[in-house]
Simulated scan of single mutants.
Amino acid sequence: MRFDLTDLRLFLAVVDAGSITHGAAEAGLSLPAASERLRDMEAAGGVALLERGRRGVTTTEAGAALAHHARTILHQVAQMRGELGEHARGLRTTIRLHANTAAITEFLPGRLASWMAANPQSDIELKERQSAEIARNVTAGFAEIGILSDAVDPGDLTLRPFATDRLIVVAPRGDALTAMARVRFADVLDRHFIGLAGGALQDHIEAQAAKIGARLKIRVRLRSFDGICEMASAGAGVGIVPEAAARRCRRSVPLAAIRLCEDWATRRLSVCIRDEADLTAPGRSLFEHLTSNARP
């Protein structure tokens, strides 16, 4: 039987996601192409690797064995690339970096700018993901570096502090909420919200509402924190954004910012890698750069 690296990455992505659809997307393949590869893998091995059900997929005994060996092989490939990278000079490299919404919008632009200016031969493939998915992707080798919150179990990943991300409620100045220094999430759920048009942070906020049996009443979804702050300042609704975004927007619009009481609203972000030995030379340089000026 012959499995290539794309087969192995796809198989691990499907196993970790528990879904062929989500695994295919993570591996950068269309669903038909991914399904065909999986069928070919099972045909080549003469054994079923996945049990398919209404709620997703799980591994068979043979599939679990393949997943174990696939992780070992991809780990060794990463080590090989890291060692070869030490000897490469003048070649373009791409570093795969997965991060959550707040890291991408509020913290990474400033951090990445100086490093990329100093490393013109290195490109970054940046993807927005939820923290739990980031941990899985770095573990499986789909990303060299991740930035995730302390709300998830990182397993055996190596972590270093990156920043503290506080989520706050934004409303117009003079709103009744401004009489409070802090507000409970449950106490604003009767309000109408200006939300993000998708993304890991919006999913996180809506999941917290679902945990207490509620659903956000979204008036409109926008693509930026600046847009949410501008509409909130005009009284169109309230929003939940990172404190750094609210602080920036208050310079240009009449905006009130009220901290949320819940622990989930204060997230300590960390940079994670699987093993420093797995990193290419540029990847190791970026990892050191991102963690050298951690913000409290």
Score class of each variant (00 low, 15 high):
residue 221 R to D: 00
residue 147 I to L: 05
residue 186 A to N: 06
residue 171 A to F: 01
residue 209 A to P: 02
residue 179 A to I: 11
residue 158 T to I: 11
residue 177 L to G: 05
residue 190 D to Q: 10
residue 158 T to C: 04
residue 203 D to E: 14
residue 206 E to R: 11
residue 169 V to G: 10
residue 172 P to C: 09
residue 191 R to S: 09
residue 200 A to R: 06
residue 192 H to G: 03
residue 194 I to E: 10
residue 183 V to K: 04
residue 204 H to M: 04
residue 147 I to M: 04
residue 193 F to A: 00
residue 172 P to Y: 15
residue 211 K to E: 14
residue 170 V to H: 13
residue 167 L to Q: 08
residue 160 R to S: 03
residue 210 A to N: 11
residue 189 L to N: 11
residue 201 L to M: 14
residue 210 A to M: 13
residue 185 F to T: 01
residue 171 A to E: 03
residue 162 F to P: 01
residue 217 K to F: 07
residue 166 R to K: 15
residue 183 V to M: 06
residue 197 A to P: 01
residue 218 I to C: 10
residue 197 A to D: 14
residue 213 G to T: 04
residue 161 P to V: 09
residue 144 E to M: 10
residue 182 R to T: 10
residue 150 D to L: 05
residue 188 V to F: 01
residue 180 M to L: 08
residue 209 A to G: 10
residue 198 G to R: 01
residue 149 S to H: 09
residue 205 I to D: 06
residue 146 G to A: 00
residue 150 D to Y: 08
residue 176 A to H: 02
residue 169 V to E: 06
residue 200 A to F: 07
residue 184 R to I: 01
residue 144 E to V: 14
residue 179 A to C: 00
residue 185 F to S: 00
residue 162 F to C: 04
residue 221 R to C: 02
residue 177 L to N: 03
residue 158 T to R: 10
residue 163 A to Q: 01
residue 184 R to V: 05
residue 188 V to W: 02
residue 150 D to W: 10
residue 186 A to L: 10
residue 221 R to Q: 02
residue 155 G to L: 09
residue 166 R to Q: 13
residue 201 L to P: 02
residue 184 R to W: 02
residue 202 Q to K: 02
residue 193 F to V: 00
residue 152 V to R: 07
residue 181 A to K: 14
residue 173 R to G: 11
residue 193 F to S: 09
residue 182 R to S: 13
residue 175 D to H: 15
residue 181 A to P: 02
residue 186 A to V: 13
residue 146 G to P: 03
residue 207 A to P: 08
residue 145 I to M: 13
residue 163 A to G: 01
residue 154 P to V: 08
residue 211 K to R: 12
residue 191 R to I: 04
residue 171 A to N: 08
residue 155 G to V: 03
residue 184 R to H: 12
residue 213 G to Y: 07
residue 164 T to M: 10
residue 170 V to L: 08
residue 212 I to L: 03
residue 149 S to W: 09
residue 194 I to T: 03
residue 180 M to F: 10
residue 196 L to I: 12
residue 201 L to V: 00
residue 190 D to G: 15
residue 172 P to G: 06
residue 165 D to V: 04
residue 164 T to G: 08
residue 197 A to R: 05
residue 220 V to A: 12
residue 151 A to E: 13
residue 220 V to Q: 03
residue 206 E to V: 06
residue 187 D to K: 01
residue 210 A to Q: 15
residue 200 A to M: 05
residue 168 I to P: 02
residue 218 I to F: 07
residue 189 L to A: 00
residue 216 L to M: 14
residue 169 V to R: 11
residue 149 S to L: 07
residue 155 G to H: 01
residue 154 P to H: 11
residue 175 D to T: 14
residue 189 L to E: 05
residue 213 G to D: 12
residue 154 P to G: 00
residue 145 I to Q: 10
residue 166 R to N: 15
